[in-house]
C-alpha cells in the first residue's frame, strides 16, 4: 500500500467515489418521483451526444463532448414529453422508444464515421476507463503535497470533484422546494414553488452528473449509482434527510469496495488480471441493495402484513 497504490489506485478510487456521490444524490429524488429510469435513458442517449460532438468538432476533447451529451439528454427528455402528450403513450413506453432510437442512431453514426484514429467506441462508452485514470507523476504519499506531482493529476478527478460538489450544493440550496415538490406537488405549487422548473432542474442536474461521471467511468456505473444506493437507502429509513445520507454512504461503499475487489480480488483468488472496475462497482451496489431488501428495517410497504 505504498507508492504503487498512490500512483495506480488512488485517483481512480477517488474518481469512482465522487462519481457515485454525484449520481446518488439526484437519484434519491428521481427514485421518490418514480423517475428512476430517467438515469437509464440519459446514459443511453449520451452516446449519440458525444458522437455528434465528435463529428462537429473533429476532436475527442472534453468540453464539446460534455455539451453534446447534455444536449442529447435534453433532446431525449423533450422527445419523451412530446410522445407522451401528442401520442398519449404511457411514460415507460415513450422512454423505451426514445432511448433505443437515439442509442441506435449513435451506434450507426459511430460506425459510419471514421473514428479509427481516436479512442471512441461503444465499449468505452459502456465500461468507461476507470482503471486508466492513473496518476503518472506521483511517487508515493508525499506527492500529495508536491505541487509538481499534483499538476499531473488526471483532469477527470477535478471535473468529478467539481460536479459532486456542485450537485451537493444544489441539493442543499434547493432542499426545501425539492422535498416539498417531490412529496406533495400540489401543496408545493400552492405555496408558490415552481414545481415544473424544479422537476426540469432535477433532470438537468441528473444529466450533468451522468455526463460527467460517464466520461470518467462509463454508463454502467451511472445507471447503477442512480438507482441502487438510493433504493437501498429508501429501505433503511423513513426520513428523507437520513435517506440521502445513507445513499451517499452506500454509494461510497460500493465505489470503494467495488474498485478494490476488481483490482485486487482476482489476485487474492489466484488470478492474474484485474476485472472491470465499473462492472464490479455496479455488482457491489447490487449486493448492498439485495441485503437491504432482505434485512433493512423499513423494507416493507406501510400497512403490509409483517412476516410475509
Amino acid at each position: 500500500m505504498g507508492a504503487e497504490f498512490v500512483q495506480l489506485s488512488l485517483t481512480p478510487l477517488l474518481i469512482g467515489i465522487f462519481a457515485a456521490i454525484a449520481c446518488a444524490l439526484p437519484g434519491n429524488f428521481l427514485l421518490l418521483r418514480r423517475q428512476a429510469l430517467i438515469g437509464d435513458t440519459i446514459s443511453h442517449v449520451v452516446l449519440p451526444g458525444i458522437v455528434v460532438a465528435f463529428l462537429v468538432t473533429g476532436t475527442v476533447s472534453t468540453w464539446p463532448m460534455l455539451v453534446g451529451a447534455a444536449a442529447a439528454a435534453v433532446v431525449a427528455v423533450v422527445l419523451i414529453e412530446i410522445i407522451k402528450r401528442v401520442g398519449r403513450i404511457e411514460p415507460g413506453a415513450a422512454m423505451g422508444v426514445v432511448f433505443t432510437s437515439l442509442f441506435a442512431a449513435g451506434v450507426l453514426l459511430l460506425e459510419q464515421s471514421d473514428t479509427s484514429g481516436v479512442h471512441l467506441d461503444v465499449e468505452h462508452a459502456l465500461y468507461g476507463n476507470l482503471e486508466s485514470l492513473i496518476w503518472f507523476t506521483a511517487e508515493d504519499w508525499s506527492s500529495l503535497t508536491d505541487p509538481r506531482a499534483l499538476a499531473g493529476l488526471p483532469p477527470e478527478l477535478f471535473r468529478m470533484v467539481a460536479v459532486a460538489l456542485g450537485v451537493s450544493f444544489l441539493t442543499v440550496v434547493f432542499w426545501r422546494p425539492l422535498k416539498l415538490s417531490t412529496f406533495d406537488e400540489g401543496f408545493a405549487g400552492a405555496v408558490g414553488i415552481p414545481t415544473t422548473a424544479i422537476g426540469l432542474g432535477l433532470v438537468i442536474t441528473a444529466a450533468v452528473a451522468a455526463v460527467a461521471a460517464f466520461d470518467a467511468v462509463g454508463s454502467i456505473i451511472v445507471i447503477a449509482m442512480f438507482i441502487c444506493p438510493p433504493a437501498a437507502a429508501r429501505l433503511m429509513t423513513n426520513r428523507l434527510e437520513r435517506q440521502v445520507l445513507w445513499s451517499v454512504a452506500f454509494a461510497v461503499l460500493s465505489a470503494a469496495l467495488g474498485y478494490v475487489l476488481a483490482g485486487y480480488g482476482p489476485l487474492w483468488l489466484g488470478g492474474e488480471h484485474a476485472v472491470s472496475a465499473a462492472g464490479m462497482i455496479a455488482t457491489v451496489s447490487g449486493i448492498i441493495l439485495a441485503l437491504a431488501c432482505l434485512f433493512a428495517p423499513h423494507r416493507a410497504r406501510v400497512g403490509a402484513p409483517k412476516g410475509t
Partner: peptide, 18 residues
C-alpha cells in the same frame, strides 16, 4: 427494473473481462 438492469449488466461485464 433499473436496479436489476444495471447490476446484472455490471456483473456481466465483470464476467466478460474475466
Amino acid at each position: 427494473i433499473g436496479a436489476v438492469l444495471s447490476v446484472f449488466f455490471g456483473f456481466g461485464i465483470v464476467l466478460l473481462t474475466i
